[in-house]
Amino acid sequence: MHKDNETCVQRARFFFYFFEKPKETPPFDQIVKVKQVKPEAIRNLNKFLTSRLERIATMMELLTEVHKDWAITGKKDYILMETESYDFNASLQILKEHGFDDSEFILKVEYTRKWGVL
């Protein structure tokens, strides 16, 4: 289908959570509401956050280098990157080529009809 005949707009939304990786036990489980929290648990959290935040920053850099039009919103526990002008498959490819797998982010795709389409 020719690009001019496309009838929808795609919005790709990448969620990068600070404190947890999807499909992984969050380090806070060893801290929050735990009696006799061990210092080791705090060190684990430190290591986790240092690594996690660095990887989120790298993913953000990769995506913004390959495409400029991103709406980036900071929330208290995650970063949300959204674009309507870059296909989600291309974004996924870039991230995977640099060693990031699906467990490092949550991707949601939304479509809307182009304004005025029946």
């Binding site: 289908m1 005949n5 496309e6 009838t7 929808c8 795609q10 296909d87 989600f88 498959n89 991707l107 949601k108 795709v109 939304e110 479509y111 809307t112 009809r113 389409v117």
Partner: peptide, 19 residues
Amino acid sequence: IAIGGTVKAEKQHVSIAIS
């Protein structure tokens, strides 16, 4: 468009379905 987004269909496929 709702199901296309939900199942992460390709943009081209959603456009074809709409057409």
